[in-house]
Amino acid sequence: MNVEALYQDIILDHYKHPRGRQLLADPAGESHQVNPTCGDEVTVQVGLDSDGHLLVGYEGQGCSISQASASVMSELVAGFDPAQGDDARRAFVELMHSKGAAEPDEDVLGDAVAFVGVAKYPARIKCALLPWMALQDAEAKAGIGIAQEGTSTS
């Protein structure tokens, strides 16, 4: 495992060309998460469209892993129904805690499979998880997903 395997092309591409990097006009919930050890920041906003699908907005500043993760996440889960979004989040969290041994399911995670190498660098896992934690918190604040799970997950 070398550093190039950590920074896969997909990650670099999302870092240099972030997708959907803007805030929502009328968010139902918002969460600002900070990694207090390094100062990485991300704000994630969520809402539901008229069909009950997720709207996701974000902005932030920080390292390539945290910012690419936010871009990948927003592109992936926007348009999902909340239950699908939860599935993706759980799969991503599991991937991050796999110590690099997992074989991620591209059907569930899309481009987020590129973060598999991050799991081998414990100091960077927090970077990759930051936007996903913000998504979870924003959904909880918006009351999204509560009906599906029965309890708040924040």
Binding site: V3, L6, T37, C38, G62, C63, S64, I65, Y121, C127
Partner: peptide, 24 residues
């Protein structure tokens, strides 16, 4: 970002601190 600089230094065996150094 300093995190990414630190990662490449680490790849060469160099241990440095990255972040706000408790002096935000």
């Amino acid at each position: 970002h300093p995190h990414d600089v630190g990662q490449f230094l680490d790849d060469k065996g160099v241990a440095v601190r990255v972040g706000h150094h408790c002096a935000w």
